[in-house]
Simulated scan of single mutants.
Amino acid sequence: MTQPRLSPEIINAIGARVLLSEGEALVHFAQNLTPEFHVAVEKMLKCEGRIILSGIGKSGHVARKISSTLASTGTPSFYVHPSEASHGDLGMIRPEDVCILISNSGETFELGDIIAHTRRFAIPMIAITKRPESALGSASDVTLTLPDVPEACLIGMAPTTSTTLSLALGDALAVALMELREFKPENFRTYHPGGKLGAQLIKVSQLMHDGAAVPIVAAETPMSEAILTMTSKGFGIAGVVENGLLIGVVSDGDLRRNLIGLMEKTAREVATLNPVTIRGDSLAEEALRVLNSKKIGALLVVDDTNAPIGVLNIHDCLRAGVA
């Protein structure tokens, strides 16, 4: 079969048409959201087990993604393949769970055994389908109806717009649960410890050096001793404390500015008072911004009383992938 020679403009126009078609379908869906949406969210919120997703073909791929999104945002979830369910995996679905079954037509034969299982054991079932009057829609406790809009392909048969709508609906469910549960960044990192995203959510307390590694001197410490502390700890700074609280920091820059008579001075006299610090519960990404903006190599970490509890070096952030 001879491949047609199309211009870049025509090819780009096809792509734009598909995106516009699916975008318009999403806007229509948002403006006509199925009234049962809040009922589905409430059932999922009250679920004492896990949210079980299932579907076949393209709907199966969408179900896997929704399950993954739920699990990563604080709602325990997993995917069960309909065919595997018919050969023993029904045992994975328990009475305390909630099932979400996806089928555009609502007549997917392979979902039959899961539907029967949920009815037999009174397991709440949510259907995502375009046809609420279908076998799936009729059997469900809650039916989330997809709008009856055409697929994005010219022949109107390839699952395109319908799968986009299902996927977006799954995201809407997940985000609603996140907000109702007041899911926070620190919770998010629990489920995303790896990669760039995990690095962005690392806290200062997880990277800082603490205990004996923290370079601290008393306010009246002679500079000869303060320099030894700066050198031995290897951070290029020394925190200056009085009554256990941080009042200043001596840096390499402070040494250069006080070269004349340096050894006759105390740490208090040389230090930069009221220095820039960071809290242990701050994100390491925030600490890196401070380090870069102030053009410094290390930060002292303080608690809510301004007592020093650690020190963070810019290289600690970079090694952890915070950049």
Rank of each mutant, 00 (worst) to 15 (best):
H117Y: 02
A16V: 12
F188G: 03
L245Q: 14
V302M: 08
L45D: 09
C153M: 06
V249A: 09
A40P: 03
L255F: 04
V270Y: 08
G280Q: 15
S140Y: 12
G137S: 09
A139E: 14
L26T: 13
M208A: 05
R94F: 07
I202G: 01
D113I: 06
T34I: 05
N187E: 12
N12K: 05
V27E: 15
L197W: 06
G321Q: 09
A219F: 12
A320H: 12
E242M: 13
F109N: 12
A219C: 11
T145D: 02
T164C: 11
I114G: 00
N292M: 10
E269I: 02
V142A: 00
L318R: 04
T164D: 06
L245V: 13
L111K: 04
E264A: 14
H38P: 08
S251M: 03
I247Q: 02
K294M: 15
L180M: 11
T145I: 02
M44F: 09
K46P: 03
L207C: 00
S77F: 00
L26C: 10
I51L: 13
M263P: 00
L90Y: 12
P76Q: 04
K233C: 10
F109S: 12
T231Q: 15
A30M: 10
S86H: 01
N313L: 14
V249I: 15
P95Q: 02
S21W: 11
C317F: 02
D148T: 10
L26I: 14
I100S: 02
P8M: 05
M178L: 04
E264Y: 13
P308F: 07
G248F: 14
G234C: 07
N187C: 07
R131C: 12
G244Q: 10
T69N: 08
C47G: 05
S103H: 10
L33C: 00
S166F: 15
Q3W: 15
C47H: 01
R257C: 09
S232A: 01
